[in-house]
Design a protein around this nucleic acid. Sequence first.
DNA 1: TTGCGATCCCTTTTT
DNA 2: GGGATCGCAA
Length: 880
Amino acid sequence: MPDARLESRLGGLPGRSSATETGTKWAAISAFWREYPHLMRKRALDALEAMSSARPLREDAPARAGESLGSARAHDSLLADLTDAQREAVITTEGPLLILAAAGSGKTRVITRRIAYLLAQGVPAWQILALTFTNKAAGEMRQRVEQLLGEDGGDAGAPRGLTISTFHALCARLLRRFAPLMEGRPGWSLRADYSIYDSDDQQSLMKRVISEAGLQTSNWPPRTILAGVSAAKNRLQGPSDFAEMAKQSGDFFARTTARLYESYEKALRQANAVDFDDLMLLTVRLLRDSEEARRQVQERWRYLMIDEYQDTNHAQFVLSTLLSVGAVAPDGRTLPPNICVVGDPDQSIYGWRGADISNILEFEAQYPGTKVIALGQNFRSTAPILAAAGALIRHNKRRKHKDLFTKRPGGAKPHVILCADEHHEADVVLGWLKGLIAAPSEGEPPPTWKDMAVFYRNNFLSRVVEDALRRAGIPYIVARGTAFYQREEVKDALAYLRLIANPADEVSLRRIINKPARKIGNSTIARIENFAAAERITLLEAMRQVERAPGLTTAAGSAVRRFLSLIDAWTGGGSFLGQGVPESLADLVGRVLAESGLEAHYKRTSEISPGDEEGSDKYANLRELVSSARDFEEEYDAAADPAQERVGADAAPPPLLAMLRAYLESVSLVADADTIDPAAGAVTLMTLHAAKGLEFGAVAIVGLEEGLLPGQRAMEAQDGVEEERRLCFVGITRAMRHLLITSAARRTSRGLIERTIPSRFLDELPKEQIEVVDRSEEFGEAHDELEASGWGRSAADRRPARRASNGSASSGGSTAARSTGKAPAEAPFPVGAKVRHPQFGVGTVASFQGRGVNLRAVIEFRDVGTKTLVLQYARLQQVE
DNA sequence: TTGCGATCCCTTTTT
DNA sequence: GGGATCGCAA
């Protein structure tokens, strides 16, 4: 420990954040404790006292910080190459611990060492629970722990019983295991064979719910409703709580959402399915309501660690309180829980998804006696890059101030290049990447493609960059949208499997009932549906009684029966026993693919359009699914399957069915981010969100423009810009040695060329630490010509005055999103004008909103009421 | 019932 | 520019 400099221990309580938010948070917490007094721990005073005695209160507790240092050789190697602060974080094993781990401060290293240290202290592996947000993070953590243990000459390989899992996977397991305990409770209808719906499934379900409620999906977009539902679930609000809230606010939209939430929930339960948010919400309910489940969970896990704590939402916060109950000391006192959270408020970028940054800002207040350790030394980036990141993030108001620092001198200045348009921008990025390869800096390892990444705010920005890279023959991978298990053909196959595992799963049934086409068309389905509704039976059950359904032709009836016999052949009529039933999972998957006709269907479509790479991939993907099932089968350990440890009275499911359920669960919880593979020999393209937790030698961030970064919607939300700034900060701090930031003066969006305003974040970078080059005039002529040739409107119409392009004014200027009583200059007609819409008829223009291509008119139609229309699309005609 | 083409509407970020 | 939906023809 050569460096005596202490960077740890931010003393005292965090600066007060907004008083109201703190207030509601506390109200929620105290209401929670009031409701569940049996969970009540000895509160602040007791806890503080216990902490201040600063020695183990339990016989078997590991020694506290410092006392046993150096006593065991294993510890030396675990602690050797750590800073003082890092070491402190590793050896503080007891009580609540908050580790503020700045970007690049060796967070993962600390967590994995801490787990290894706990094990070395003799803590049984099964008492340790580490939670992450992605499978990838969990996998890496496990791997690195195994590595550490291997090096130490201990038993190599995974310590049995150590739980490192994502929140979602943990909840899925707990629900599957403990669902039988909840059977028969009012309002609980989930069985252990439930399906997990991803966002596609959610949407198709919500679509149906909306139309069954007699509403138009055009007026009530499923996405928007689902966002409201998701937010409610993240706050642990059920349909009735939400309805109550909506009633009080008197908001029509909220009231309708509440109604749809209730029906959606009913439909989910009918399908014996849960969505992602339910996993958390229902687990909280389970642990609150079932004493038995709670006892088992709390007796097992004694050391809880949570990674990326700044991204937890309210449900996850409550879940963590339920999982982390302090042990009882020999003298009968309750000890503070051993909960260790790691995070960085400056990297909180999931507020829009319900992440509650106050969970980390107020951790100390929530857990009295918390020890706080700040890791501020950065081991990743060069000084100029850190300076840029630090200068940017200092513009955030709501923030615990802390500066990143590095001990390594030198490094190239980050480049900022202003480009003419997005094609120019892509060329600039391309040239920069090539330049790094061609002329590597001295004293650095020569960079390769895999050390480089391009980040952007929105997925659609990747296209132009992709095109440029492809043309230049540079290998690249896009970490994007469609993970393997989300692809159309794979989801089709999984839908068959899910139907087998959970016959109530209507979303899956509807997906594949006529795919590939087997003459069960919409009218047939509608008739069966009516029959099912009348008889109050599931869709599948209605199909089984198809001869009783009215109005069906014999041809339709036999098509339905053929479908059913297909399913029954795979499952042995549901028993999974007897002749002809597949013996292995891979066997089952293979037969489903072949006999359903899916395989032939996709093989055929790939032969029809052989030029289509996507098409021919689909068949290969289906084959790939079979081998994924085989892999799963080999690794599957029935004894370790939580669903196999029966806690209720039910008989165990047939082994194949149990394995199938476990398989489906595992594939449902795979996310896009998990597929990112920095080891591939290619430039990585990804969103800024996906970049969190990664690092690259060289990073380019494109599209630094108002409306893009910060994004339009974020700018309208409260504290939205601060989150966007953090997002930008995350991007910058991924870069180890080289950083390029670009913006384009013009950008084509929705087929229209638009002038842009450089992002305010560019102004916030430290001028003397970066190199700015303005190349936005290059190629200007060519594009002006193009621009002038296109559209019916005059050039002036399409050019909203560019506000102080370089400027100081960018912060104060009012963005024109608000509705105005006056018509903007580019509006084709004045307020009060009479217009005709092809569909809505005649109306009067009340006001305008937005500008440029987003210029919208609020029009009071004579017949259909008030509508807000985007002028560019509305095809309005002025009438005299 | 199926499949294709015209047409409408729109663009965050993801477990 | 593109994805989803709808209507129409076979």
